[in-house]
Design a protein around this nucleic acid. Sequence first.
DNA 1: GTCTATACTGAGATAGAC
DNA 2: GTCTATCTCAGTATAGAC
Lengths: 207, 207
Amino acid sequence: MKQITGTKQKILDTAERLFGERGYDGTSLRHIIAEAGVNLAAVHYHFGSKQELLDEVVLRKAGPVNEARLALLDRIEAEAGRRPPAVEKVLEAFLGPMVESAERNPQFVRLMGRMHAEGLIPGILRKHFQPAASRFLAALRRALPGLSEQEFLWRMHFMIGAMAHTMCRSPEFPGAAAGDVRSRIARLVVFLSAGFRAPAPRLRRSR
Amino acid sequence: MKQITGTKQKILDTAERLFGERGYDGTSLRHIIAEAGVNLAAVHYHFGSKQELLDEVVLRKAGPVNEARLALLDRIEAEAGRRPPAVEKVLEAFLGPMVESAERNPQFVRLMGRMHAEGLIPGILRKHFQPAASRFLAALRRALPGLSEQEFLWRMHFMIGAMAHTMCRSPEFPGAAAGDVRSRIARLVVFLSAGFRAPAPRLRRSR
DNA sequence: GTCTATACTGAGATAGAC
DNA sequence: GTCTATCTCAGTATAGAC
């Protein structure tokens, strides 16, 4: 385990902080290197491009979050035995670890929300979260056998939107005590579970 | 009614199209002026800045949408008499006109979603939609007397997130027939109504 | 292998001639 | 009202010092 030179580390740390504070587009490489006290070209040497820097910032944090999520899901599924676990449980397992990460490092969840916001960046989120997310998708699917595949996918999208927006905008939100992340999750879980459980709409043949 | 010079109009039309197609950050002024066949400085002469150009693009479309929304809300409230109208009705009145606008001009709703996404741009959406939105907020509030103010506001945020994400990302979405906007709305309304109606969570004193 | 200096291209903005 | 020229600041690329 060699101690990494420091330059790369400093860039990562500073980038994580600034991306979280001001967004990806809102943070210039020059701002990052100024605060980190390194040279501009060092960024491209170590990471190749601004996007790849972001990629590594996300990667560093996404790993632990995903592991925690999957561990929770394992436990929940074990507890449920052969029956599918409750929607609420699955959603909590999905949202909880992100929240704990947020408590240790508020900037990170902010960044997650922002990234979803800024258009997902080509596919970074998908890349890092897809593997874990698809297991949750399957678990939710089992918990909601009554929904058509299409209806189910739409509801996943509604969920993702609500989640991202909540993570991203909550700090600047009236009445949202800064540290009150747990109740934020509780509220989200209740809201989303009810939405997921709602009977599917009867649709007129379109047009 | 003087015929506007043409330059301003051309810029607006082109900007609306390109912003919708490639997002705000993804569209350079130079790209806009090239397609519109005008000079770069003309943009700053007529609009002042790229942001203010976006502002006017939104303004041009937001007006009719808001009028339609409020007209629907009036009708619904009249029909309901002294009783508050159903959550579903209010949500439909809110989402419907946006959808109709989308059918005439798919790019616009796309842009709306994207703007929410790209970080709201300082306050453009708030500026143009707040007046109408606050009447809807009041109507929803009356339809949901059981919720605490705070719970209610959070749920509004969940709704906005789901809405924005759905508008923004739906075109590139598997299984989403392009023209199938009406059923998209129906699904959203069902999902959100159920969420709004869910009993509020019991929250542990935080921490 | 690491890092620095510097140059290149394209962005938004602005002053001033016409 | 319109256009040219120019400014500043992005992200990126490369040559070469250590």
